[in-house]
């Protein structure tokens, strides 16, 4: 049900984008108000969310250790999976963010029942990694629309991305990978009963939204060609805060724009915030050195304790009878005498 609702929601957005440009007011909304509003919401929302996390203290030192600790000098420590230094933490975080180390942990291919297990989980890691890297590449490629002259490294990225040199316009690998990965992640959400069981509207919505953005982008590049020059002119004018409305912008482009703006505005309110959250995760970004260095809890407060004195008073006679030394030997004697 939630899958259907989210699909409908995304289709409604697409329709709004395609049709919205027909009236003057609609065009104004789509090319002026929506982009700036979305950008503002994204920036403000993202900052608020990250700051809210950052302001919440980390009262206890709770890294999840995934390897041998640093203890005795002759025992080999797992310096990345159980880091004890800043560098180790940095390496662990890098592996986590760039390579999805923990997801990969799933996937030790093993022989069982005389056959190699390459489980579903391996594909999850691969699908997730492919999706995120392709998305990053595509985002960076889009910089060419916002910066004039186009930086050399962006051109370099494009050449790299198009190295297959198939077709005209040249096919970008990242486009293919992104679509394939998204399709897989969606397929998995439907097919795996456990994942389907826990999936919410927002899970499907994010996937459909990204898929719609990717599809509209691919359509514009390879099939329903848009006037790239006017798109760039429009993008530059947006970036310079002097937006111009160009008649040449096609409905498909407007739909793409609306979808992207929706994503940007939706992001701070959604699970997609994980991109910011991963950096702050206390089970990953702390060194396992809590016995070596004292971790400070800013709100540590005194608690009610059962002190030794109270304990000794309560059990005084039994302590004496059992011959367990008391704190004040003389006092003890006085009692027994």
């Amino acid at each position: 049900m939630s899958a259907l609702y989210s699909l409908l929601a995304v289709l409604a957005l697409v329709a709004a984008g395609l049709e919205g440009g027909r009236t003057g007011a609609g065009r104004d909304a789509l090319t002026l108000i929506v982009p700036y509003a979305a950008f503002t919401i994204f920036l403000a929302g993202f900052c608020v969310r990250v700051l809210r996390w950052a302001w919440a203290p980390v009262p206890f030192h709770i890294p999840t250790t995934c390897g041998q600790q640093k203890s005795l000098p002759w025992i080999r420590q797992a310096k990345v999976d159980n880091p004890s230094s800043k560098w180790g933490v940095l390496a662990r975080m890098a592996a986590e963010i760039l390579l999805f180390r923990s997801l990969f942990r799933n996937n030790r291919a093993r022989m069982a029942e005389k056959r190699l297990i390459l489980g579903e989980s391996k594909f999850l890691w691969l699908g997730a990694l492919a999706f995120h890297w392709a998305l990053l590449l595509i985002l960076l490629r889009h910089l060419r629309l916002f910066i004039q002259p186009v930086p050399a490294w962006v051109n370099g990225l494009e050449r790299l991305d198009g190295f297959l040199q198939i077709g005209a316009p040249q096919l970008y690998i990242s486009d293919v990978i992104l679509l394939a990965a998204l399709a897989y992640l969606l397929y998995r959400r439907f097919r795996d009963p456990a994942v389907r069981y826990i999936s919410l509207f927002t899970d499907y919505f994010a996937l459909f939204l990204l898929l719609a953005i990717a599809v509209s982008g691919v359509l514009m590049r390879y099939f329903v060609r848009v006037d790239v020059l006017s798109v760039k002119q429009f993008a530059l004018s947006l970036a310079a805060f002097r937006p111009v409305d160009l008649r040449a912008l096609s409905p498909l482009f407007l739909a793409h724009l609306l979808l992207v703006c929706t994503l940007a505005a939706y992001l701070p309110f959604s699970k997609l915030m994980h991109m910011g959250g991963i950096f702050l995760s206390p089970t990953r970004n702390l060194a396992n050195d809590s016995r070596r260095k004292r971790h400070i809890n800013p709100w540590n407060y005194p608690v009610k304790k059962h002190t030794y004195a109270e304990w000794e008073e309560e059990f005084h006679d039994k302590l004496v009878a059992a011959g367990i030394p008391l704190e004040d030997e003389d006092a003890g004697k006085a009692h027994t005498d």
């Binding site: 093993r110 029942e113 297990i117 579903e120 009963p193 456990a194 389907r196």
Partner: peptide, 16 residues
Amino acid sequence: PDGMAGFLGEERDPFR
């Protein structure tokens, strides 16, 4: 329970 049959049926690793 619903949602378990897939995993129980498909995952072949005896320890997982």
